[in-house]
């Protein structure tokens, strides 16, 4: 038996399509965003930045839910979350 309910507007409301942007050269590789992300969207980058730090990078395979914690925990002001808006094609 399930103890939870389905939201009534489950068909209509879609979670937004979010993506994490990181200013690569501002990141100092403290890993706060990587470890505290609830969906493990972020990971270590494969290459180094110009200062020699290993910046964080977003994993395109994982879905960000825009909790915003990476944005506010980043001490370097390097992370931002953007939403992809789907527009109707111009006819």
């Amino acid at each position: 038996m399930n103890y939870w309910r389905k939201p009534l507007d489950r068909d209509k409301v879609k979670p937004g399509d979010f993506e994490v942007h990181i200013l690569k050269d501002r990141c100092k590789g403290c890993r706060f965003c990587i470890d505290f992300c609830p969906r493990q969207v972020l990971r270590d980058s494969d290459d180094l930045n110009t200062k020699g730090y290993r910046p964080a990078a977003a994993d395109p395979a994982k879905q960000c839910i825009n909790c915003g914690f990476c944005v506010i925990v980043c001490p370097e002001f390097a992370v931002s979350v953007a939403m992809r808006l789907e527009k109707e094609p111009n006819v």
Partner: peptide, 20 residues
């Protein structure tokens, strides 16, 4: 088409030229 709405507001309030 896909448009990206950025939500980064902090950059208006910090001095960009002094970063990092």
């Amino acid at each position: 088409t896909i448009e990206i709405a950025n939500t980064k507001v902090i950059d208006q309030y910090i001095r960009q030229d002094r970063m990092p």
